[in-house]
Design a protein around this nucleic acid. Structure first.
Lengths: 136, 136
DNA sequence: TAGTGCTGGTCTCTTTTTGAGACCATCACT
DNA sequence: AGTGATGGTCTCAAAAAGAGACCAGCACTA
């Protein structure tokens, strides 16, 4: 991974635009954001924000995710500290996934974005329709 | 695109977890979220939130984006109504990209998430290190 | 006792998405 | 006449994602 994600000018400009004063020495923001902006990540965090779920439950909850991507995304979320994975010695063994404190903390701002999406999806849909109409 | 993104149970549960009362008939939230959760989308919105930029400026601002993905991502952001594209008849013609009102509106909650990332990247980095250490 | 199902995965193969880099036309400046 | 800047597109290779087979262990059933 390259830490020189922005050049100096970019650093300063985005810094100004975003933080109004926090430390921005290297640019880890993008790294963190990309960890939660995968195709399935936010969706799974959203689901787990309600309550813990087992692997199979999540698979049924999000019917169009492949088992492969479910495993992989949960693994990444666990690695980044958002999700806790616990195996119960039932037969067959069951695995429960839940949000950690960090995950719940991250969900708060994520939820804001989700709410925005909910309130503005009509505007986005209209914009798309208008754009597609103009492009033919 | 399939509108049956969640099954009924999922709909109700995520609905409860998220909205505390808004309408959730079909599930456009995911569609909107995925439009802004691409690898480069939020980064470009972040940049344009500060001020309008021209194509080449953006390319220099985000040095590790390919010209191909810059074109494509800006096109998608424009289609979804977040970004306005304006061509100026200079020689050679220059193209300026700027946020629309919708884009600025979306940036508000996005900024919350960015701020969270800024405040918590240490925790995420530590979680990753701990996870990787345990996995060997 | 043999068959079936459920658990949470992994492995392989194919398709889609992305990245790297060449190429393009036009005009200004040297 | 050559060089550079503009904002792209096109092609080809690499990476990521989707589809689906497979697996072990145990419970239940016929």
């Amino acid at each position: 991974m390259d830490s020189k994600i922005f050049n100096l000018k970019a650093k300063l400009e985005v810094y100004k635009a975003m933080t109004n004063g926090a430390n921005f020495a290297d640019c880890p923001v993008r790294d963190v954001i990309q960890g939660i902006s995968g195709k399935w990540s936010s969706l799974l965090v959203m689901a787990l924000a309600e309550k813990p779920y087992r692997f199979g439950e999540l698979r049924r909850l999000v019917p169009d995710i492949s088992q492969r991507m479910l495993t992989q995304t949960l693994h990444e979320l666990q690695r980044d500290g958002y999700v806790h994975r616990e195996v119960f010695p039932t037969k067959p063994p069951s695995v429960e996934y839940s949000l950690t404190d960090l995950g719940r903390s991250m969900f708060l701002p994520l939820q804001q974005l989700i709410q925005w999406a909910e309130l503005n999806h009509d505007a986005v849909r209209d914009a798309r329709a208008a754009f597609d109409a103009n492009q033919g």
